[in-house]
């Protein structure tokens, strides 16, 4: 063995660690492993049930591969149509509601009380999953697609109004000042200096939201708010996997089509 002093040019190198402080590094590693162990232990997997599930999975796969569009076609057709109409109406209402709320939620345009109110509304809509909102609307309006329309419209606010408000807050203030310098009123200032800056993105986001609404419209039916969800849940609870498979295929194809169209339109807008 040669001593290090005999080899002065030999220098050690190892890559710098992600977290420099060794105490923190080990704390993070140990905590993550500990969490994983505890988290996995709460799963309490019922292996017998999983085994039965595996058998059922084979059956399900077989039935999924030969979907049954026919025997419940009436229900499926009505459900899909309802989902689509809900999506269309809810997206339009959502846009109409989101524009004023978005403007109100922009700190550079709105006075503080209006700003806080609009931001509160946005947070409320973003925090609750669509299905939970649907529960409240079903309580109000009873079962049916109207509750679904209200749900999706309300959920659209959390998405569209938030992004619109953020867009408005990031607009180029020079243009606003230029229009204001001509002596324009607040409304004129907004329509000439703000709207042209944010409207292209708003159109793109609205189309994107249409996609999301279509996807969500398939599940609000689980709590009775209309659409294909109720039919799908019935099919699953009866283990009618061939019918469920048919519905899933229709949903996937519909979502793919709308996504294709919407990405095409959004690309053309840019």
């Amino acid at each position: 063995m040669t001593t290090p002093s005999a080899l002065p040019r030999q220098r050690r190198w190892s890559p710098p660690p992600l977290i420099r402080d060794p105490w923190r590094r080990w704390a993070v590693i140990i905590l993550s492993i500990g969490y994983l162990m505890v988290g996995l232990s709460t799963l309490n997997i019922n292996w017998a049930r999983v085994q039965r599930g595996a058998i059922r999975f084979q059956r399900m796969l077989a039935e999924f591969l030969q979907p049954d569009f026919v025997s419940r076609w009436g229900d499926i057709q009505a459900g899909i149509l309802e989902s689509l109409t809900m999506t269309v109406v809810a997206t339009v209402i959502g846009i109409i509601l989101s524009v004023p709320i978005g403007f109100g939620g922009a700190r550079n345009l709105a006075p503080l009380p209006i700003y806080l109110f609009c931001r509160g509304l946005i947070t409320l809509s973003r925090t609750f999953q669509e299905v939970i909102i649907a529960i409240v609307f079903v309580i109000m309006f009873g079962f049916g697609p109207l509750a679904g329309v209200c749900t999706l419209s309300f959920a659209s606010i959390g998405f569209l109004a938030k992004l619109l408000a953020e867009d408005i807050e990031e607009i180029d203030p020079a243009q606003v000042e230029a229009i204001r310098a001509t002596g324009a009123s607040w409304l004129k200032m907004v329509s000439y200096a703000v709207v042209p800056q944010v409207s292209p993105r708003l159109v793109g986001l609205s189309i994107y939201r249409f996609d999301i609404n279509l996807r969500e419209s398939a599940i609000v039916g689980v709590v009775g708010a209309g659409g294909i969800g109720a039919t799908l849940q019935t099919a699953f609870s009866r283990y009618d996997f061939d019918v469920a498979g048919a519905i899933l295929i229709i949903i996937i194809v519909l979502v793919m089509i709308t996504e294709f169209i919407s990405s095409y339109i959004r690309r053309r807008l840019q």
Partner: peptide
Amino acid sequence: SVNSLIWALLLVALLGPG
């Protein structure tokens, strides 16, 4: 394309609730 709630429906049918 398939919402997590629909995936949940499917998996509950397969694996049972849990």
